[in-house]
Nucleic acid binder design. Sequence first.
DNA 1: CATGAATGAGGTTTCATTCAT
DNA 2: CATGAATGAAACCTCATTCAT
Lengths: 216, 216, 216, 216
Amino acid sequence: MSTPPTPAAEERLRDADRSQNTILIAARDEFSEHGLGGARMDRIAERAGLNKRLIYYYFEDKERLFQAVLEQAYRDIRAEEQQLNLLHLKPETALRRLVEFTWNYYLEHPEFLTLLNSANLHRARHLAQSERARQLNSPLIATLAEIIERGRAEGTFRGGIDPLQLYVSIAGLSYFYLSNNHTLSAIFERDLMTPKAHNERLSHMCDVILGYVLMS
Amino acid sequence: MSTPPTPAAEERLRDADRSQNTILIAARDEFSEHGLGGARMDRIAERAGLNKRLIYYYFEDKERLFQAVLEQAYRDIRAEEQQLNLLHLKPETALRRLVEFTWNYYLEHPEFLTLLNSANLHRARHLAQSERARQLNSPLIATLAEIIERGRAEGTFRGGIDPLQLYVSIAGLSYFYLSNNHTLSAIFERDLMTPKAHNERLSHMCDVILGYVLMS
Amino acid sequence: MSTPPTPAAEERLRDADRSQNTILIAARDEFSEHGLGGARMDRIAERAGLNKRLIYYYFEDKERLFQAVLEQAYRDIRAEEQQLNLLHLKPETALRRLVEFTWNYYLEHPEFLTLLNSANLHRARHLAQSERARQLNSPLIATLAEIIERGRAEGTFRGGIDPLQLYVSIAGLSYFYLSNNHTLSAIFERDLMTPKAHNERLSHMCDVILGYVLMS
Amino acid sequence: MSTPPTPAAEERLRDADRSQNTILIAARDEFSEHGLGGARMDRIAERAGLNKRLIYYYFEDKERLFQAVLEQAYRDIRAEEQQLNLLHLKPETALRRLVEFTWNYYLEHPEFLTLLNSANLHRARHLAQSERARQLNSPLIATLAEIIERGRAEGTFRGGIDPLQLYVSIAGLSYFYLSNNHTLSAIFERDLMTPKAHNERLSHMCDVILGYVLMS
DNA sequence: CATGAATGAGGTTTCATTCAT
DNA sequence: CATGAATGAAACCTCATTCAT
């Protein structure tokens, strides 16, 4: 039987973990604010309140740090998706909730949007190099497939809906509005980020998605 | 009226224009490939086949160069939008064409997507500083409003459709798919850029938009 | 006399000795491969399979570690020289054996050559600081003096041979060939490290040395 | 007919050349004093009295700068070798002059020795990458071959002398003494760098080389 | 005896920008 | 209009070394 780790060892371990986590959060913020090219390792260290050298100690270099941040971002959203329990709801309500969830998650996690943009600017090579990439696959696709199937079975949903297309559309409706809100606001001279505007957008998106899936 | 320029002066002017344009295109490519932070003035000069100093001569600095690129990108898409002539078509067909146009433009101008992303990463400050910003406003909103109104009048479209929301949704459906195709492909292990996938997406998007606007 | 150490303490001591030795060997390899400036304490620790902190515990710092490595290198070659027993041989044979020994030692201990180069690059300050420096003096000089004297006495060797000059010449003939073999090979486009080339060099060197010392 | 370059262009060109040369000399000194690993780009810039960035502008990086320095060092010694005109002398005198020249060159160019040492520490990869490597081949080998042949023909030189071996031996006799003078001095507690010691060494080396080549 | 975590100073390199012509 | 040479600031990263246990 192994002896329990001494408090000291435990503490040390926890410190290492804590440091890594602090760095990860600081890096996430920096990358999401400035992009991969504009992010500064110095600022990340400063944000984390830790020595710059430590970042290299744990994450090797900027690229790999970005990769770690990206993986963490996916892990975070997947963790929240897990809690949705959409299959307990009737199909129409489930879709409504999914639209709502997606909207709210993007709204509350603007860094997720910019991180994704950065990842795509770099042609997702950071994901391609990630061994955990496939684990980041959303379980929502399978869930959506079942919801669609049920709606179809009960006669409320139209046939021929591709779950991936639907998923992408639901995401896209929120994503574009929020990710591009600055240019949209500048060009249309209209503030898209008021609570009222948010409610209108959410309502519109539900109408679009349900207008599509529901049998007329 | 001013006197006509001498031939020599004229030629020099044309050279100047040509150089500026060459730089603008080189910069657009560089910015769209690497983002604002990742773009390199050296590379832009190299791409343009012109001396670096000339870029500063015409565009002052990197920021203003990016601003110029952004304005040009908007001018380009607006020029193409002008040609759509949607009001000659019946409302449903007009919407279909708009979805199609948006999709094709984004598909053929991937740099437009990444430029927009960069602009938004920087909170559109380059547009805010642009005096021509309001000229970049899409005339499509007004056109869309009229299409919606006509559809409503003839009884085929539902009521209460906000043209801006619809515009954003049409754009978002294409945008997310194309802009994020690298991460989506990596995570879903599915190639989204085959001609077949493109057709499916376009068809799906039309279904979504029309499913939404058409009276059931 | 001190009381004998307890077995446990003894073992610990042996461990300590072993660790120091392991470090010394790892450091020797690292220094000889990369020079003093290019050597990395991290790599030394890794090579030794021991914690970096331990190196500092035993050797204080990089400079002193290099000094220790250098002293050890001299101690090693002196130990082998001890075994030569040149005085049992007749003068000519003794010289032949010395040339041969020098050649073989350098050939089998390439690290010795690069360590010496590093030491000289730093103007031998590591030896100057070594209290054991004078112990590193080669006993070969005295031996050589006696060999020369005997050869002179028996009438086979020429007069006026300075043992130190002869020693340096014997060393230099091997040293230059082996230490500079990479540049020589590159420039003369000829592989100097084949067994055949080695034999030819050894034979040539004996001819040179004996051609010099022997009365004609 | 091309017009002569304007003074301005000429000046600029000369400045560029001059800057490169200044850097090369500063780098040579720094590399020879500290080795490749110990050399500091900062110090090279300071020695050259030029901006550090300029070094990268002209030489790309530290490795390539070292390569350029090495090539220059070879070019320098080859240039001096050209002037020897050994074939005008009788064979014995020619060899004497070669020994003398080699000794003096090494004595007056101690940086050449340390540069060679550094090059060899790195396994001459800087030469291997040099496209001009083969041009650095010493013409002395061919000259030596002819001298040997003439000495043999006139009956003063022994047969079977390999010019490359002889060249290496002549170089090695000077090289070891000068390159390792610090460790030798430290260990033998004897100053090898007095004029008197130098004369003795030169005299000894001539005796060794001539003792070898001359028929007894 | 031994170690993983942490650091400050400094290293190489890069970058936007300017100079001089 | 156009250019090659030059620069200061700052970027990423490395290194010898120390801390805390």
